[in-house]
Structures are given as C-alpha cells and as structure tokens.
Simulated assay, not measured.
Amino acid sequence: MDDHELQTQTQKQQSQTLQLPLAAAGRRDMARIAILLAAAAVLCLMSSYHSSLPFQSLQVLNFSAIGPPDTHEGRELERILRDASTENKTVIITTLNKAWAEPNSMFDLFLESFRVGQGTHHLLRHVVVVCLDATAFSRCSEVHDRRRCYFLRTTGTDFSGEKLFMSQDYLRMMWRRIDFLASVLQLGYNFLFTDADIVWLRDPFTRLDANADFQIASDFFNGDSNSVRNAVNGGFTFVRANNRTIEFYKFWYSSRQMFPGKHDQDVFNKIKLGPYIEKIGIKMRFLDTVYFGGFCQPSRDMNRVCTMHANCCIGQANKVKDLRQVLEDWRVYLSGHRREMRWRSPENCRRSMKK
C-alpha cells in the first residue's frame, strides 16, 4: 500500500471514529452539542470584534426619521427641500427647539447674521429650519419663511427645553439629527448643516472643496485638511448626496450601538479611523478655523472668516451674550475699522468652561 492509499484509509477511519459517538447520541445530545458550538462561535466572534473593532461587520439599521418617501411626512419634507434648494439640489439646514426659539435669543441672532454678513442675505431662501416642537415651529413661521419650516415630530421624547451637553435628552437629540440628515441624503439633496449657534459672516460655499464628499468643521484645526486627527465639530458639515455618503450616514447612525452614552461627534471620532471608511471610499475634508472659526479656536483674520461658532461654551445665555458681541464687532469691522479690528474675547463662554 502506497503513502496516498494509507493516508486515505486513515482519514476514513478517523471519520468513522468521529461519527460513532454522534450516531450513538440521541436528539437531546445533538441539540446540546449544537447549542455549545453556537455559543462558542458567538464568544469567538465577540472576542475578535472587541479586540480589532471590525466596523464593517456592524449591522446597518433602517432610518425612522420620516418614514418612506410616500408617507405624508416624507412628501412634506421633499416638498420643502425642493422649494428651498439651489439649482444643484443643495439646502442649508438647521434645527430649532423651544429654548433656542425664544425672542431675542439664539435663533434671532442666527437669522440676523445672514442679514449683516457679506454676500449671505440671499442664502436665507435656502435655509430649512427643522423644528423639534410645536413652539419652535410657530416661532419659525413668524420670523422665517413658513415654507422653509419643517416640523419633525418625535414620540416619547420632549425636545423643547434647553438640553445640557451630554444629558440623555441631548444625546437623543443629536442622534435624531443624524437620522434626519441621512433621510435628506436618501432624498437626493446635498446639505450644509449648521447649528443655530453659528453666525454667518461670509458665504461659506466659496471655501468648500468641490471634490470632497463630506466636509466637517474643526474645534481645533491642525493645519492639514486631509488629516483625520483634527478635532471635529459636527455642528457645521457639508455633505454631497451620493452612495458613499448615504452608506456612511447609515454606518454612523448604527455605530451608536457600539458606543452607548456617546454623542455623534465622539462616535465619529471612533469610526473615522476604522477600515470601513476606506472601504466606502468617502472623501473627507476637515475645515480650517481661519475660515470656519469658533470660540475654541477663533478665526484671527476678519478679512477671511466666514462663520463663527459658539463652541467650547456651556449654557444658552453665555452663547447668546458672546455671539451678540461677535456681531457687534463685525459691524464695527464693516464700518471701516478693518486694519486694527480684532474679536473681543468670549469671556462668558470661557468662564462657563471653567465651572
């Protein structure tokens, strides 16, 4: 008998030996073995997942913000987006709740900035305000074009009050926003999302990368717009509607399950380093604070600044005071005092971060 025949016979004997105990076992034993094998497989997968974070294996969930496009909510949103969009299907989106809609408060400053900014007034016709409660919708309808106000109804959560950073309602509101923005992409619209605590001083579209899929502001910019090591801020993002960005938003929203208790920005910082981003092929850019500044890292050049964000700040009252000061400084700058003009320090916000 040659070596090949000997090896074949040995394998048959081993197979028969393995089959004997299984054949002898009853159905109950077979079920126990199956359960044990399945449990072992799950444990192995979980161990592998947590050690290497293979994000591409995370289940992607369906969105629930507006439902299918043929629902009443879907048709209403699509109508508003269509009426507000530019020729290339781009809209500006912000969110609003009762707390920020109070007269002489955040929303009024936001709208005022478009009116006093350079080349920004015409952009108001493209601003869609996503209202999170009935009071916000009523206020939006009074001071903005009612046709640009969309009431995003949510069951089980009250979004009307001021939401403190990292509170449970704050987290729900942030993830609701990601869910909604994903729906906008699925409807085929590009969007520039802006928090309402951002004042617009110049047209920001002139400073965006025409070749990027996803562009996001930075709390602190490291000098490299391609670097994923920039400290991002999700309060200002420009996203083009395509298969890559739709898949990314699905992935981003689903990833919250892996990081419970984290808001969208923290989860973004986790997944931006993962292999799935490369697999999607999405082109990301991180915005320079020279043009897109904030209280974390203010733009020092008033000749180039486009937006200023009340980031690195806790409390609506502090944000309102220091943003009002920004607009005051901006008016002085526009009056002709351009060479010597500098932003005053946002002291209310700085004190709020030290408490």
Rank of each mutant, 00 (worst) to 15 (best):
M353K: 11
V184M: 11
I80E: 04
L273Q: 09
R331L: 14
Q11N: 02
K98T: 11
L327Y: 10
N104F: 07
N230R: 10
Q59P: 13
Q59S: 15
M308Y: 12
E87F: 06
D322A: 12
V199D: 03
Q13T: 08
H144N: 08
V60Y: 07
W100P: 01
Q11K: 07
S47C: 11
F114S: 00
A99M: 11
L37T: 14
N88M: 13
V239P: 01
Q215W: 10
T206M: 05
F268D: 00
A217L: 03
N190F: 09
C140A: 09
S85T: 10
K12D: 00
R342G: 05
T206L: 12
V332E: 14
D264E: 05
A23E: 10
E162T: 04
D329Y: 06
S47K: 12
A41D: 13
D2Q: 04
T94E: 06
L208V: 09
S113H: 02
S227L: 07
D3H: 14
L20W: 15
D2V: 03
I314W: 13
F220K: 13
E87A: 12
N348R: 07
E328D: 08
Q19A: 12
Q215L: 01
N348F: 04
R153G: 12
V116H: 12
C296I: 06
D301S: 07
S225D: 12
N62R: 08
R153Q: 15
H337A: 00
F221I: 04
E340S: 13
S47V: 14
R79H: 15
R229P: 05
I93M: 13
I33G: 02
E112Q: 10
V128H: 02
I280V: 01
P68V: 14
Y189F: 05
A39I: 14
H50M: 13
C140G: 03
A24G: 15
F193H: 04
S85C: 10
A317Q: 06
L334T: 03
C306V: 03
Q297R: 03
T135D: 09
L81F: 09
F63G: 02
I277Y: 05
R229F: 12
G119R: 12
A231W: 15
M173Q: 12
W100T: 09
K354C: 04
S47L: 13
R285T: 02
L22K: 13
L53E: 03
L6Y: 01
P298N: 02
L18P: 01
H144M: 07
G235C: 03
N211Y: 05
S64N: 15
G67I: 14
P260G: 08
N311M: 08
Q215F: 09
N318V: 06
R202H: 10
R300Y: 03
G119H: 08
R324V: 08
Y253H: 01
A182P: 01
D209A: 12
C149D: 10
L187S: 11
A182S: 09
M174W: 02
W200V: 03
R350M: 14
I282H: 01
S299T: 01
D3V: 14
R229W: 09
F137P: 05
L81Y: 06
H72R: 14
F220R: 13
L36K: 03
L334G: 00
L45K: 14
T289Q: 00
F137G: 07
G281C: 00
K89T: 13
D266V: 12
Q297S: 12
Q325K: 11
D209M: 02
V199R: 10
M106H: 06
Y291K: 08
V239I: 00
V267P: 07
G188D: 14
